[in-house]
Design a binder for these strands. Sequence first.
RNA 1: GCGGUAGUGGCGGAAUCGGCAGACGCGCUAGAUUCAGGUUCUAGUCUGUGCAAGCAGGUGGAGGUUCAAGUCCUCUCUACCGCACCA
Length: 843
Amino acid sequence: MRVFVISMLIIVTRRTFMERKYDFEAIEAKWQAYWEENHFYEVTEDTTRPKYYALEMFPYPSGNLHMGHVRNYAIGDVVARFKTMNGYNVLHPMGWDAFGLPAENAAIKHGSHPAKWTTANINNMKAQLKTLGTSYDWNREVATCDPDYYKFTQWMFLKLYEHGLAYKKSAAVNWCPSCQTVLANEQVVDGACERCEASVDKKQLEQWFFKITDYAQRLLDDLEMLPGWPDKVKTMQRNWIGRSEGCQFSLAIEGLDERITVFTTRPDTVFGITYMVLAPEHPLVAKLVAGRPEEEPVTEFINRMKHLNEMARTSTEAVKEGVFTGAYAINPMNDERIPIWIANYVLMDYGTGAIMAVPAHDQRDFDFARKYDIPIRVVIKSEDTPLDGSQLVEAYAGDGLMVNSGDFDGCSVTEGQARVIAYMEEKGIGEGTINFRLRDWLISRQRYWGAPIPIVYCPQCGTVPIPIKDLPVLLPLEVEFRPSGESPLNYVQEFYQTTCPVCGGEARRETDTMDTFVCSSWYFDRFCSPQETELPFTREAADYWMAVDQYIGGVEHAILHLMYARFLTKFLYDIKMLKVQEPFTNLLTQGMVLKDGSKMSKSKGNVVSPEEIIQTYGADTARLFILFASPPDRDLEWSDQGVEGAYRFLHRVWRLVTGSIETLQDVSRPTEYKELDPAAKALRFKTHATIKKVSSDIEERFNFNTAISAIMELTNAINTYGDQQEQDLCVLKEAVDTLLILLSPFCPHITEELWEMMGGANSIHLQSWPTYDPAALVQDEIEIVLQISGKVRDRIMAPPDASEDELRALALDNPKIKELTKGQNIAKIIVVPRKLVNIVVKP
RNA sequence: GCGGUAGUGGCGGAAUCGGCAGACGCGCUAGAUUCAGGUUCUAGUCUGUGCAAGCAGGUGGAGGUUCAAGUCCUCUCUACCGCACCA
């Protein structure tokens, strides 16, 4: 038998309940302990439920949580809790990006040990993180400096080595004199070290590289597979990869048995070459000038370039300059003699370090040619450009037809490119190629606090990888720190003195460690099976959990971390460890937390400490404010008064709920609602409209700010309804329950406490996310705007399903409209059902 | 220089598909509560004008498309971010 609980109409004496204070400190501690004791957020694979992997970028354990972390983890926690309440089996882990320079610098400065310093910081930050009330499965915690973890970072290295993707070469690398180590290209910003901002030098060193360039095309193409990533990040990655199509060909050198290879994207302009340029570092330069009168000025020029830092060398502002080498090359297309120059504007690390110069059609070459009086020959002619190069005011890079180009005259630019390449390939001069700006990933670091590179150098066997069964290569703890430009491991005899795994003879270990970005390129895989001892992760666990459904972190990692993680994921896919090709299905890049318009920093003295905020107002307030103040992808301006506002709101909720416990405690919600009075109906409408809005704001838009404002509106509506003399307690109960559930992902503690006080079943966080009742959203009447020529003149109430004709009739019958349109010609009437009627008049 | 994002009250922001600009919060004003301050509650708060109902103007600026533009198009200014001699 079905039982209908008929809506009750009861006269209520309001707020007679003895109100308990909102003691956030006690409440937050109580529930954090409860969740932990009851293993609330620990998960295992469960094939009966859909999985969801929510991940925030794990922090470097600097010692203290800052507001950026709070924002990051508050956002992630809302997503994780929301998905859990929607029936997903949610993996939400946390760990530590625990290797890196600051630990070592702190060790040098304070005489502490990096391991000790790091562990202390992790403990401190973990405690801080726990006071935030985040729903992490701490059983899966990892720290990259843990031998159980870096054993598998070394495993990654060995697998890459095995597949020819890790190699050692001597290269001119970025050297940070302050950090006393080399840096990857990605870690050099404006010619300065990304970390310490010291000016970066070039140094010729033997270093280990990962061959990320083998994956350049896939890294580029597969961005298409990521509709859930911000376009901004994808664009940045595309630019970084920097694919350009063109051709490569070599030129003979007059009087020398050597050839110079150049890359160009404009093979259609090869007949316009009037000189060529080598980078000052180009290996052939010395041979070209040997014994010539030009040798001295050239050497002088090269020395001068060497002493300029990266910034001064490569800046667009830098004036182009160069010197003639005295040598000539031969244009393979027409056998012309081409003078060879060296100049600052050609870079050794892009293309081949040498260019063909076509001043008529390249602005840089044009500027240079004008400066040094080198002829300019037009080979692409448009209707508006001169044929005589000396008349050009600037290089012409546009479309046109080939001229002065022998058999190729008359070809269009695109046609010419294809034909020249075909000709070169036929004659064996050159070939069509694709060039990338992306360089191989330099992973050697001359520092101590990192994962040792698992390689030994044997006088007999050469470079020998450590067998996987012998991992980890342990980082010795007894080390002396002296910033010398060499790895401190160079002074630890017990470490570097070893035996060769192949021949058993005496051998020397590699003493460089790996870039920490290697460690962070696969941690999300490790979270799937963090206790696994044989492999970095088990296939079964990774097949179940990967890919990360929602990744959240700062945009500063748009290139570095995200590119490296994508690369390693593709490699793991290739060696059949993973079945996904991309690690992060959806990416949310959060904005910065600002104070007084600029990023919080110690030097500016505008840092707000999360610890203090949590102590003063509680985690729920901190979370609420930070989520309410701005949409997550935009920068957020910190406001102490805004925090007060969030705190006040929670007090309002507290009073509202505690004030109604007595009357609502024993009320059960009916399965059907009938004959509600207008006020009750309006509240029920608001309740369900709020469910609808909050759900879509979280799910579809990540607009937590508008979700929270909708919850605030519901709170206001409940309060207003409370002023009614006669209240429908079922509707009120539904509204209050809904308010708490909708607020629970944002403010997990206060809602849990109030839920318990209301006598709610088990934990609020184990409740299902509510679904809205479409019937409750049906209104008898809705407001229709009446406009005359686009200006609002009146508003009327009409049934929501009123037809266009009915609305038109209602509008024309409206007294105010009648008055204002009297004697006017009605040119047109636009009716938008459920919205407005616009009467267009012509005077 | 190239690419991107943004510009809306005193402030943070809202307006999701071209349809009532300013939701929600902060701040401010007035009143109530209070010994007082704070808290809390009530009312107000884009600008001009008016006692008021109202009327007019208003989303960085200038044009345009449209019955209707914060939203679309063209030009332009400003701020921030990314790339920057990439051959």
